[in-house]
Amino acid sequence: MPIRRRLEGRTIAALAADGFEKVELVVPLRTLQAAGAEVHVVSLRRGRIRGVNLHVPASRVRVDRTVEQADPGDYDGLLLPGGFINPDLLRQSAAAREFVRAFAASGKPIATLCHGPWVLASAGLLDGRTLTSWPGIRDDLVYAGATWLDQDLVRDGNLTTSRGPQDMAAFVRGMLDAFAATAPEPARAAPRRASDPQPEAPVGWAVGALRWSPKPSAAALMGVGLAAAVQRTLNGPDARTRRSRAAGRTGGRPRPRWLPAAP
């Protein structure tokens, strides 16, 4: 089937936060749209989230839904890009972890690469699964119960994974195949096998790129300092008192609208 029609009628959630690796969100997103899918960028906050190229700030992407607003039942699949910062923020969010668990529970396809599987580990979804990732998080995934393979693409039930941007061609093909499936593929525990060994050295091209990346500008450093000062103000004693009082009036943090009320 031509790529422009493969995913016609499908809706995909791309779960990302600030610090996403630009190529790992933008390339899959555009490919999905070219294949006919509707893609919603789901994030922890409204507005536009900032991408990165390794650690250098890149362009922003508009958020379509916050994770509290988005209902997993409205989507046919989940894309989880990587980057160093993005999945670290997502894995700390209870709402994001619940969002990911809902896709796993329904057997809907999940496609992720690079550091993206960190989120799956924190959501408790990797015990008995087989996958790949950025080599630097291999041990995290193994300790979470997964079998880790040093391959450009690994398919295990509803889970499709790649190591990083260097595997983008294989990842895009595997992602399209997974999202084009006509029926949910249940998560399964693959037969146990030994994980591939730990890497003996960091990925060479990434180290080289970091070595030759530009120095931070004075404006960037001032921006970081200003952001830190604002955050300290927001988290100060007065702010905590106001939040405590507000929580007392509302009964705590608002529940994502798609989660059932507690009995």
Rank of each mutant, 00 (worst) to 15 (best):
L176T: 10
L153V: 13
P135F: 06
N53M: 15
A94D: 14
A13F: 00
A34H: 06
E24L: 03
R192Q: 14
G164F: 03
A247L: 04
F103S: 00
L113H: 01
A190F: 12
R232N: 06
P191L: 07
A34W: 09
A180S: 15
R242D: 15
G51H: 04
T31K: 14
L131G: 06
A35K: 02
G124F: 07
T147L: 05
A111L: 00
G204Y: 09
V203L: 13
D139N: 14
F103W: 09
S244I: 12
G51Y: 07
P216M: 04
A194S: 13
R62G: 14
S162E: 03
T11V: 12
G82F: 04
M1Y: 14
A95C: 10
Q92S: 15
T112R: 02
P117G: 09
P165D: 12
E185C: 10
G73E: 11
V100E: 02
N53E: 12
R193N: 01
A17V: 07
S162V: 02
V39P: 04
R255Y: 03
N86H: 10
A201E: 11
A170Y: 02
K215V: 09
T241F: 12
S213E: 10
R97N: 14
V67S: 00
G225R: 10
T132G: 07
D18R: 02
N235V: 00
V61G: 00
Y75G: 02
M168Y: 06
A190Y: 05
P72L: 10
S106P: 11
G157Q: 09
T112L: 01
A220C: 05
V154L: 09
A34T: 13
H55A: 14
A181T: 12
W118Q: 15
E38I: 13
P81T: 07
G157V: 10
G136T: 04
R211Q: 15
P216K: 00
A17N: 12
V23A: 15
G47S: 07
P165L: 03
L29D: 09
V23M: 08
